[in-house]
Amino acid sequence: MESANVYKVPDITVEKNQGLQHADDFTMAQPFERYTAEDHAIWHQLYLRQSALLPGRACEEFLQGMQQLDVAPDRVPDFDHLNRKLAQATGWRVVAVHGLIPDHVFFDHLANRRFPVTWWLRDAARLDYLQEPDVFHDLFGHVPLLINPVFADYLQAYGQGGLKAASLGALPMLARLYWYTVEFGLIQTTSGLRIYGAGILSSKSESIYCLDSASPNRVKFDLARIMHTRYRIDTFQKTYFVIDSFQQLFDATAPDFTELYHSLQGSPILGAGELASDDVVLNRGTGEGWSDTADA
């Protein structure tokens, strides 16, 4: 999702979607005929790379979701095929979109158990990093966890909360929650720290950095803390927040946020690498290699 209540379409999105139309809710039929042999080869390369790297790094729920969904390894998956399995498991389905979509549209899709997936794929020149989401990030990174009932319920509740946050002027706070959980979250397991955030799961380099590097902070999940903490959109994260379980995440975010939003209005916003005095710190980062460009 977008990090602020501003909707803008990147140039690459315009380029990829020449001649394609979308419905009022920004969905479209997956334009399967547009995938080239190179697209399928790039998907295969990315899939093999991440599927070899993630065992022992990704949470078991993600790995199980990959198996249950039977995500195609050698070609861009057919959304309809995935939807038959997703709908049966948790009532979710993926819908094709052209790229970033307005906040209120995104929230409405989540609230109705529809996950927007950018249909197009990065090219070979941008294999390791693409600032806007593509089908590998959206589908490989996000969709396997939608087969987990608790996480599936969390994401629907997030969508419902987003519609309300928009009316209260609290979207930046809610965007930070999404960023530090759905995109860049870590989870503590009996086997150690594991990844569940899609922004990490779809990235070779950050899958290694987030668990192995001494540079970032790793801090126990705290809802209010996350809501007034900036983040990084152009480099690895300076801080990762760690949940104990998906049930903890669901329970912490189930109450109405109205009073919390009011209490945080005007509070100082922490930088992406700052630690608070009451943080439960699992790793105090060394800060080595941190960029000095502005946080989002």
Rank of each mutant, 00 (worst) to 15 (best):
I147W: 00
L174I: 06
V182F: 03
L139N: 08
L193E: 11
Y178E: 04
L171K: 00
Q188C: 08
A166C: 14
W179E: 01
D138V: 13
F140K: 01
L186C: 08
A152D: 06
V135W: 04
T190M: 08
L146W: 11
K164C: 04
N148D: 15
G169Y: 01
Y158S: 07
T181Y: 05
G169S: 05
L146R: 13
G141W: 08
P172K: 04
N148R: 07
Y154W: 14
P172A: 04
G141H: 09
I195S: 03
H142F: 05
K164V: 15
D138K: 09
V135Q: 05
G192L: 10
Q188F: 10
Q156N: 10
A166L: 15
L146I: 14
M173F: 01
V143C: 09
Y158T: 03
F140N: 03
T181Q: 03
W179F: 05
A157M: 06
G192V: 13
M173D: 01
A175P: 04
I147H: 11
D138S: 11
G162E: 06
P172R: 02
S191E: 15
L139H: 10
A165L: 02
H142Y: 06
V143H: 09
Q160I: 15
L155P: 10
R176Q: 08
V143W: 13
I187K: 03
I147C: 14
L177R: 02
L174S: 04
A157V: 05
R176V: 11
G169V: 00
A175Q: 02
L146D: 12
L186R: 04
G162A: 07
H137Y: 12
G192F: 14
Y180H: 15
R194E: 01
I195C: 05
L171N: 04
R176S: 08
Q160T: 14
D138P: 11
L155K: 13
V135N: 06
R194D: 01
S191D: 15
L155N: 14
L145K: 09
A170H: 02
Q156K: 15
D153Y: 03
Y180E: 09
T181R: 06
L171D: 00
P149C: 11
L163C: 10
T189R: 06
I195M: 07
Y158K: 02
F140T: 00
F140E: 01
I147T: 15
A175G: 08
Y196A: 04
A175S: 15
Y178N: 06
Q160K: 15
L174T: 01
L168Y: 10
G169D: 01
H142T: 12
Y178W: 10
Y178P: 05
A175E: 06
V182H: 01
N148L: 02
L193D: 12
